[in-house]
Protein backbone atom coordinates (compact mmCIF):
# COMPACT_ATOMS: atom_id res chain seq x y z
CA UNK A 1 0.00 0.00 0.00
CA UNK A 2 1.33 3.41 -0.92
CA UNK A 3 0.99 6.08 1.69
CA UNK A 4 0.29 9.65 0.84
CA UNK A 5 2.56 12.22 2.50
CA UNK A 6 -0.16 13.47 4.81
CA UNK A 7 -0.76 10.01 6.21
CA UNK A 8 2.94 9.40 6.49
CA UNK A 9 3.33 12.61 8.44
CA UNK A 10 0.46 11.77 10.77
CA UNK A 11 2.04 8.42 11.53
CA UNK A 12 5.55 9.80 11.76
CA UNK A 13 4.66 12.25 14.54
CA UNK A 14 3.71 9.73 17.25
CA UNK A 15 6.47 7.36 16.17
CA UNK A 16 9.01 10.17 16.26
CA UNK A 17 7.75 11.11 19.68
CA UNK A 18 8.08 7.54 20.96
CA UNK A 19 11.53 7.24 19.42
CA UNK A 20 12.80 10.45 20.97
CA UNK A 21 11.21 10.16 24.40
CA UNK A 22 11.11 6.44 24.94
CA UNK A 23 13.36 4.42 22.66
CA UNK A 24 16.44 6.66 22.82
CA UNK A 25 16.49 6.95 26.63
CA UNK A 26 15.81 3.24 26.87
CA UNK A 27 18.72 2.42 24.57
CA UNK A 28 21.01 4.67 26.63
CA UNK A 29 19.95 2.93 29.84
CA UNK A 30 20.32 -0.46 28.16
CA UNK A 31 23.79 0.45 27.03
CA UNK A 32 24.82 1.56 30.51
CA UNK A 33 23.43 -1.65 31.97
CA UNK A 34 25.79 -3.60 29.71
CA UNK A 35 28.83 -1.55 30.74
CA UNK A 36 31.22 -1.82 33.70
CA UNK A 37 31.61 0.53 36.64
CA UNK A 38 34.51 2.91 36.53
CA UNK A 39 35.82 5.66 38.69
CA UNK A 40 35.35 8.31 36.11
CA UNK A 41 32.90 10.79 34.74
CA UNK A 42 30.53 9.32 33.62
CA UNK A 43 31.07 6.47 36.12
CA UNK A 44 31.09 3.63 33.63
CA UNK A 45 33.03 2.34 30.67
CA UNK A 46 33.42 1.84 27.77
CA UNK A 47 32.35 5.10 26.24
CA UNK A 48 31.94 5.46 22.55
CA UNK A 49 34.98 7.14 21.01
CA UNK A 50 34.03 8.04 17.47
CA UNK A 51 37.33 9.80 16.76
CA UNK A 52 39.01 6.40 16.70
CA UNK A 53 36.84 5.40 13.78
CA UNK A 54 35.78 1.81 13.07
CA UNK A 55 38.24 0.37 15.55
CA UNK A 56 36.73 2.57 18.30
CA UNK A 57 33.26 1.22 17.60
CA UNK A 58 34.51 -2.38 17.61
CA UNK A 59 36.29 -1.85 20.90
CA UNK A 60 33.17 -0.22 22.33
CA UNK A 61 30.96 -3.23 21.54
CA UNK A 62 33.48 -5.74 22.78
CA UNK A 63 33.41 -3.94 26.14
CA UNK A 64 29.69 -4.67 26.65
CA UNK A 65 28.51 -7.75 28.55
CA UNK A 66 25.65 -9.14 30.68
CA UNK A 67 27.68 -9.20 33.87
CA UNK A 68 25.32 -6.83 35.70
CA UNK A 69 22.27 -8.92 34.90
CA UNK A 70 24.03 -11.99 36.22
CA UNK A 71 24.79 -10.02 39.36
CA UNK A 72 21.08 -9.28 39.84
CA UNK A 73 20.42 -13.03 40.07
CA UNK A 74 23.30 -13.62 42.47
CA UNK A 75 22.39 -11.16 45.20
CA UNK A 76 18.94 -12.06 46.54
CA UNK A 77 18.31 -8.41 47.48
CA UNK A 78 17.19 -7.74 43.94
CA UNK A 79 14.68 -10.46 43.31
CA UNK A 80 13.31 -10.00 46.81
CA UNK A 81 12.80 -6.33 46.04
CA UNK A 82 11.00 -7.13 42.81
CA UNK A 83 8.71 -9.62 44.52
CA UNK A 84 8.10 -7.28 47.42
CA UNK A 85 7.32 -4.40 45.03
CA UNK A 86 4.88 -6.54 43.07
CA UNK A 87 3.21 -7.59 46.29
CA UNK A 88 2.97 -4.06 47.68
CA UNK A 89 1.67 -2.72 44.37
CA UNK A 90 -0.92 -5.50 44.13
CA UNK A 91 -2.16 -5.12 47.70
CA UNK A 92 -2.29 -1.34 47.39
CA UNK A 93 -4.20 -1.61 44.12
CA UNK A 94 -6.67 -3.95 45.77
CA UNK A 95 -7.33 -1.55 48.63
CA UNK A 96 -7.50 1.42 46.29
CA UNK A 97 -10.21 -0.42 44.39
CA UNK A 98 -11.99 -1.35 47.60
CA UNK A 99 -12.16 2.29 48.66
CA UNK A 100 -12.38 3.88 45.22
CA UNK A 101 -15.31 1.88 43.86
CA UNK A 102 -17.86 2.93 46.48
CA UNK A 103 -16.70 6.53 46.17
CA UNK A 104 -17.07 6.45 42.37
CA UNK A 105 -20.44 4.73 42.73
CA UNK A 106 -21.72 7.31 45.19
CA UNK A 107 -20.53 10.10 42.89
CA UNK A 108 -22.32 8.61 39.90
CA UNK A 109 -25.53 8.30 41.93
CA UNK A 110 -25.31 11.81 43.34
CA UNK A 111 -27.61 14.50 42.03
CA UNK A 112 -26.24 15.86 38.73
CA UNK A 113 -25.78 19.33 40.18
CA UNK A 114 -23.51 17.91 42.88
CA UNK A 115 -21.26 15.92 40.58
CA UNK A 116 -18.91 18.71 39.43
CA UNK A 117 -18.30 19.67 43.06
CA UNK A 118 -17.54 16.09 44.05
CA UNK A 119 -15.25 15.75 41.05
CA UNK A 120 -13.46 18.92 42.17
CA UNK A 121 -12.93 17.46 45.63
CA UNK A 122 -11.35 14.35 44.11
CA UNK A 123 -8.98 16.39 41.96
CA UNK A 124 -8.21 19.04 44.59
CA UNK A 125 -5.20 17.23 46.16
CA UNK A 126 -3.38 17.46 42.82
CA UNK A 127 -3.12 21.17 43.36
CA UNK A 128 -0.41 20.66 45.97
CA UNK A 129 2.83 18.74 45.59
CA UNK A 130 2.61 15.01 46.11
CA UNK A 131 5.85 15.16 48.07
CA UNK A 132 4.36 17.54 50.62
CA UNK A 133 1.22 15.48 50.94
CA UNK A 134 3.23 12.33 51.59
CA UNK A 135 5.37 14.18 54.13
CA UNK A 136 2.20 15.30 55.86
CA UNK A 137 1.41 11.66 56.54
CA UNK A 138 4.46 11.49 58.81
CA UNK A 139 2.70 13.97 61.06
CA UNK A 140 -0.35 11.77 61.11
CA UNK A 141 1.22 8.32 61.40
CA UNK A 142 4.27 8.81 63.68
CA UNK A 143 4.10 7.63 67.28
CA UNK A 144 3.38 11.21 68.42
CA UNK A 145 1.22 11.83 65.36
CA UNK A 146 -2.39 12.88 65.23
CA UNK A 147 -3.69 9.38 64.69
CA UNK A 148 -2.02 7.99 67.77
CA UNK A 149 -3.03 11.02 69.82
CA UNK A 150 -6.65 10.52 68.89
CA UNK A 151 -6.51 6.77 69.53
CA UNK A 152 -4.87 7.30 72.91
CA UNK A 153 -7.35 10.00 73.81
CA UNK A 154 -10.25 7.77 72.83
CA UNK A 155 -8.71 4.96 74.87
CA UNK A 156 -8.65 2.59 71.93
CA UNK A 157 -4.97 1.85 72.53
CA UNK A 158 -2.79 2.08 75.63
CA UNK A 159 0.44 2.87 73.90
CA UNK A 160 1.13 4.46 70.53
CA UNK A 161 0.90 2.17 67.51
CA UNK A 162 4.00 2.07 65.38
CA UNK A 163 2.69 2.57 61.89
CA UNK A 164 5.31 4.84 60.44
CA UNK A 165 8.27 2.99 58.91
CA UNK A 166 6.22 -0.19 58.40
CA UNK A 167 4.73 -1.60 55.19
CA UNK A 168 1.33 -0.46 56.48
CA UNK A 169 2.42 3.16 56.17
CA UNK A 170 3.49 2.47 52.58
CA UNK A 171 0.09 0.96 51.79
CA UNK A 172 -1.64 3.97 53.30
CA UNK A 173 0.58 6.32 51.35
CA UNK A 174 0.06 4.58 48.01
CA UNK A 175 -3.69 4.17 48.46
CA UNK A 176 -3.97 7.82 49.43
CA UNK A 177 -1.84 9.11 46.55
CA UNK A 178 -3.33 6.99 43.80
CA UNK A 179 -6.99 6.95 44.85
CA UNK A 180 -8.06 9.58 42.27
CA UNK A 181 -6.60 7.43 39.49
CA UNK A 182 -8.93 4.64 40.56
CA UNK A 183 -12.00 6.78 41.16
CA UNK A 184 -12.00 8.76 37.93
CA UNK A 185 -12.10 5.93 35.36
CA UNK A 186 -14.65 3.96 37.38
CA UNK A 187 -16.77 7.08 37.76
CA UNK A 188 -16.55 7.69 34.02
CA UNK A 189 -17.80 4.15 33.34
CA UNK A 190 -20.61 4.32 35.91
CA UNK A 191 -21.76 7.78 34.97
CA UNK A 192 -22.62 6.93 31.40
CA UNK A 193 -24.64 3.91 32.44
CA UNK A 194 -28.32 4.15 31.59
CA UNK A 195 -30.46 4.14 34.73
CA UNK A 196 -33.22 2.24 32.94
CA UNK A 197 -30.95 -0.83 32.72
CA UNK A 198 -31.32 -1.25 36.46
CA UNK A 199 -35.06 -0.88 36.17
CA UNK A 200 -35.08 -3.50 33.43
CA UNK A 201 -33.07 -5.85 35.65
CA UNK A 202 -35.47 -5.32 38.53
CA UNK A 203 -38.41 -5.79 36.22
CA UNK A 204 -36.96 -9.16 35.21
CA UNK A 205 -36.75 -10.34 38.78
CA UNK A 206 -33.50 -9.00 40.24
CA UNK A 207 -33.32 -7.51 43.69
CA UNK A 208 -31.45 -4.22 43.93
CA UNK A 209 -28.29 -6.05 45.00
CA UNK A 210 -28.57 -8.65 42.27
CA UNK A 211 -29.14 -5.89 39.72
CA UNK A 212 -25.88 -4.29 40.89
CA UNK A 213 -23.88 -7.49 40.44
CA UNK A 214 -25.53 -8.48 37.17
CA UNK A 215 -25.59 -5.10 35.47
CA UNK A 216 -23.76 -2.24 37.17
CA UNK A 217 -20.63 -4.17 38.05
CA UNK A 218 -20.03 -5.79 34.65
CA UNK A 219 -20.67 -2.47 32.93
CA UNK A 220 -18.11 -0.72 35.13
CA UNK A 221 -15.46 -3.38 34.46
CA UNK A 222 -13.57 -1.40 31.82
CA UNK A 223 -13.29 1.41 34.40
CA UNK A 224 -12.09 -1.00 37.06
CA UNK A 225 -9.44 -2.47 34.77
CA UNK A 226 -8.25 0.96 33.70
CA UNK A 227 -8.14 2.16 37.31
CA UNK A 228 -6.21 -0.90 38.47
CA UNK A 229 -3.55 -0.45 35.82
CA UNK A 230 -3.30 3.26 36.47
CA UNK A 231 -2.59 2.48 40.13
CA UNK A 232 -0.58 -0.71 39.78
CA UNK A 233 1.91 0.41 37.15
CA UNK A 234 3.22 3.57 38.82
CA UNK A 235 3.10 2.15 42.33
CA UNK A 236 5.30 -0.77 41.26
CA UNK A 237 8.23 1.57 40.67
CA UNK A 238 7.26 3.94 43.47
CA UNK A 239 10.23 5.48 45.24
CA UNK A 240 9.04 8.55 47.16
CA UNK A 241 6.40 6.89 49.31
CA UNK A 242 8.47 3.89 50.53
CA UNK A 243 11.47 6.05 51.26
CA UNK A 244 9.48 8.65 53.21
CA UNK A 245 6.98 6.41 54.99
CA UNK A 246 8.42 2.90 54.74
CA UNK A 247 11.64 3.22 56.71
CA UNK A 248 14.51 0.85 56.12
CA UNK A 249 12.42 -2.33 56.40
CA UNK A 250 10.33 -1.82 53.31
CA UNK A 251 11.93 -3.34 50.30
CA UNK A 252 10.88 -1.73 47.07
CA UNK A 253 12.64 -1.79 43.78
CA UNK A 254 12.34 1.97 43.31
CA UNK A 255 14.31 2.49 46.49
CA UNK A 256 16.95 -0.04 45.48
CA UNK A 257 17.31 1.72 42.18
CA UNK A 258 17.83 5.05 43.89
CA UNK A 259 20.44 3.65 46.23
CA UNK A 260 22.39 2.00 43.42
CA UNK A 261 22.45 5.24 41.48
CA UNK A 262 23.11 7.80 44.17
CA UNK A 263 24.55 5.97 47.18
CA UNK A 264 26.67 3.33 45.44
CA UNK A 265 27.14 5.34 42.27
CA UNK A 266 26.91 2.00 40.47
CA UNK A 267 25.19 3.20 37.34
CA UNK A 268 25.50 -0.02 35.35
CA UNK A 269 23.80 -2.15 38.05
CA UNK A 270 21.17 0.53 38.59
CA UNK A 271 20.50 0.55 34.87
CA UNK A 272 20.18 -3.22 34.82
CA UNK A 273 17.63 -2.97 37.65
CA UNK A 274 15.72 -0.39 35.63
CA UNK A 275 15.76 -2.50 32.47
CA UNK A 276 14.34 -5.51 34.32
CA UNK A 277 11.72 -3.33 35.99
CA UNK A 278 10.70 -2.04 32.58
CA UNK A 279 10.39 -5.59 31.24
CA UNK A 280 8.20 -6.51 34.19
CA UNK A 281 6.04 -3.47 33.50
CA UNK A 282 5.70 -4.16 29.80
CA UNK A 283 3.49 -7.15 30.53
CA UNK A 284 0.73 -5.28 32.39
CA UNK A 285 1.03 -2.35 29.96
CA UNK A 286 0.39 -4.63 26.99
CA UNK A 287 -2.55 -6.19 28.82
CA UNK A 288 -3.86 -2.72 29.53
CA UNK A 289 -3.57 -1.75 25.88
CA UNK A 290 -5.50 -4.85 24.87
CA UNK A 291 -8.26 -3.96 27.32
CA UNK A 292 -8.48 -0.44 25.98
CA UNK A 293 -8.65 -1.65 22.39
CA UNK A 294 -11.37 -4.11 23.22
CA UNK A 295 -13.48 -1.34 24.68
CA UNK A 296 -12.80 1.17 21.95
Amino acid sequence: MRMNPRRLFLIAVPYGWLLALFMVPFLIVLKISLSDTAIAIPPYMPTLDLSAGWAGIREFFSGLDFENFTWLTEDDLYWKSYVSSLWIAAVSTFFTLLIGYPVAYAMSRAKPEWRPTLMMLIILPFWSSALIRVYAWIGILSSEGYLNQILLWLGVVDEPLSILNTPLAVYIGIVYTYLPFMILPIYAALEKMDESLLEAAEDLGCTRIAAFWRVTFPLSRPGIVAGCFLVFIPSLGEFVIPSILGGSHTLMIGKVLWEEFFSNRDWPVASAVAVVLLLILVIPIVLFQRNEEKNA
Binding site: D194, S196, L197, E199, A200, A201, D203, V215, P218, L219, R221
Partner: peptide, 11 residues
Amino acid sequence: MMFQSYALFPH
Protein backbone atom coordinates in the same frame (compact mmCIF):
# COMPACT_ATOMS: atom_id res chain seq x y z
CA MET B 1 -42.35 -4.20 30.82
CA MET B 2 -40.84 -3.50 27.47
CA PHE B 3 -39.08 -0.17 27.80
CA GLN B 4 -39.54 2.62 25.32
CA SER B 5 -35.74 2.97 25.27
CA TYR B 6 -35.43 -0.87 25.09
CA ALA B 7 -32.95 -0.89 28.01
CA LEU B 8 -31.05 -3.86 26.60
CA PHE B 9 -28.03 -4.94 28.61
CA PRO B 10 -25.08 -3.86 26.47
CA HIS B 11 -22.66 -6.39 27.97
